[in-house]
């Protein structure tokens, strides 16, 4: 495996993000976070209103990388085997043959993940956590680049199953795209007047490039002081008032890894506090379980993490 220098890695990142920017106007920040998750080996949950470009962003990323891409539309009657795959008896050779499900891919778009039953949702647990699936008692490894982009819609609740906390914790990041500025929205209208720019999008990075980027991110150095800062941030969410369940050590790991990737994108070979602060909300907030009372008094997990970032002294 070739290891990229920070500057080459930055170049790869630039290429991909520029490519995505052709389709996703005004979403540079989201793209940066998405790629940080990709490079740090995490998965992403996009929660936003319909029509804000969640699926488009996922597809744009998939198209930008020359890698396998599958999309699963989650519905209440979706079964685990519909995702993992199924063994079918062959009449011809009197044997069971395993037919791989959509999970055997590089980039998986799990659209409207909260519409599937908890049983199906948890079929993803092992795959996302350990990069492998167990079907018919047999362990099958997934490909080295396995990246899940899940989307969910925060406004509709009928016929949905909220993701359990354990599943939420498997996502390295959760963020919303949000509505773009009016000017950018006009640009989107212009771009899509005739046909969707997504169709013209061409891959700009190979699978090898992305794997090298991942590898390079792992090699980004981080000092003990900043590790301690990461732990302090996660720890502070556990003690914050109104929080029933704070961020787990898995959250600290995810935050460190994502910060490493971000440092790489910034052309650095070590992590600085800025990268940690930039990602703290996206990495930590969705893992917090708020007390019902706090929820009613308008306190959000996002607000808690923002408060924590403001409170905890940053190393300088």
């Amino acid at each position: 495996m070739t290891t990229l220098t920070p500057s080459t890695a930055r170049e790869v990142y630039r290429r991909i993000s520029d490519n995505i920017a052709r389709v996703m106007q005004g979403q540079a920040g989201s793209t940066r976070k998405l790629l940080a998750a990709l490079a740090s080996g995490g998965h992403v949950l996009l929660e936003d209103f319909p029509g804000t470009g969640k699926t488009t962003l996922a597809k744009a990323l998939a198209r930008s990388i020359d890698a396998r891409f599958k999309r699963v539309q989650f519905t209440p009657d979706l079964l685990p085997s519909d995702i993992l795959g199924v063994s079918i008896f062959s009449q011809r050779d009197q044997l069971f043959h395993f037919h791989e499900g959509p999970i055997f891919t590089n980039i998986l778009l799990a659209d409207e993940i909260n519409r599937a039953s908890p049983r199906t949702q948890s079929a993803l647990l092992e795959a996302m956590g350990e990069g492998q699936v167990s079907v018919d008692g047999e362990r099958r490894d997934l490909s080295e680049l396995f990246f899940v982009i899940a989307t969910e819609n925060p406004v509709e609740f009928r016929g949905t199953y909220p993701l359990p906390e354990a599943q939420m914790d498997r996502f390295a990041m959760e963020f919303a795209l949000g509505y773009v500025q009016p000017g950018e929205e006009v640009a989107i209208l212009t771009a899509q007047a005739k046909n969707h720019p997504l169709e013209e999008l061409k891959p700009c990075a190979s699978l090898v490039d992305v794997l090298a980027l991942k590898h390079a991110a792992q090699n980004v150095r981080i000092s003990d002081e900043l590790k301690r800062y990461v732990v302090d941030l996660a720890g502070a969410t556990r003690a914050a008032s109104g929080v029933q369940l704070g961020a787990s050590p898995r959250a600290s790991i995810a935050l460190m890894k994502a910060a490493q990737a971000l440092a790489l994108f910034d052309g650095l070979d070590f992590v600085t506090p800025e990268q940690i602060q930039e990602l703290a909300v996206s990495v930590l907030a969705h893992r917090l379980v708020m007390e019902p009372q706090a929820r009613f008094s308008g306190l959000t997990a996002r607000g808690v993490v923002e408060g924590v970032v403001k409170k905890v002294k940053v190393p300088a």
Binding site: R221, I222, S223, D224, E225, L226, D269, F270, V271, T272, P273, P315, A316
Partner: peptide
């Protein structure tokens, strides 16, 4: 400064 402070090297 950052390199001095935060780079383990």
């Amino acid at each position: 400064h950052y390199r001095y402070r935060f780079d383990p090297l």
